[in-house]
Design a protein around this nucleic acid. Structure first.
Lengths: 120, 120
DNA sequence: ATAACATCTGAATAGATGTTCATATATTAT
DNA sequence: ATAATATATGAACATCTATTCAGATGTTAT
């Protein structure tokens, strides 16, 4: 991934200096780009997408999610942990059961935009 | 991932029938959800995110992208292939060089929404 | 035709990821 | 305290994925 000057490559032949400046100016810091990729990685699993979609309509407990989507309780629990870590879902406890719900409207808009892209 | 009735679980204790109906009605087909996850998987890699971001300002050739982002030409080429496969970038050939550009405004909005979510 | 250049492709490898199994924790009822 | 229930967690395993290396393809100039 890291590179130095030990390999022959073309120069910035096709890129004007001012364009280069604009591209570089737009480019966020490496860490921010990394975090962004980490966020999308969370959306990049069908189990998690299913869970998020199920939560569109109503808060749900772990067990209901598992039955609804035909998944094991353990798998759901693991994935909810990931979704929680990215602040995409929040939860509240009520006795033995834990209810999860969407934490953020960005979830809807991101998924919505993704769906739009697919249906083109 | 697949389950049957051989394991003890809670019933739909917390979910009213009409809510269940709404949740199920909202839920897209499995294949669609799978495709959506595949799409986000593409966004879920920092190299690809960098490439997409670089293309926000201007079309770029493979070699310029590689130098700009300090990546090998091969790695960039492989990732452009993936981006092309998801219709996120398009390209045009000009002599020896190939210029890539964003294929879709959804790229901007999806990345934008992701960034917004991070900065909360 | 040959050389030089830009890009692409396939195989191999190392690292990341999701599920399962077994078990632990937490809450409620008896 | 004990049992029952809902959820969470850790380790192990199999699968997927991104990069690198070596070589192929396509284009232009000589």
């Amino acid at each position: 991934m890291q590179r130095d000057e030990d390999v022959e490559r073309c120069g910035f032949l096709h890129l004007h200096k001012d364009t280069l400046a604009r591209v570089m100016a737009q480019l966020p810091a490496d860490e921010e780009l990394y975090d962004l990729a980490e966020l999308f990685k969370v959306f990049g699993d069908s189990t998690r997408i299913k869970i998020l979609y199920a939560l569109f309509e109503s808060e749900l407990c772990v067990c209901d999610i598992a039955q609804l989507l035909n998944l094991t309780q353990t798998a759901v629990s693991h994935q909810l942990r990931v979704l929680k870590g990215s602040k995409l879902v929040k939860f509240r406890r009520e006795g033995k059961t834990v209810f999860y719900s969407l934490d953020d409207d960005h979830v809807r808009s991101i998924i919505g935009q993704g769906m739009e892209h697919l249906n083109e």
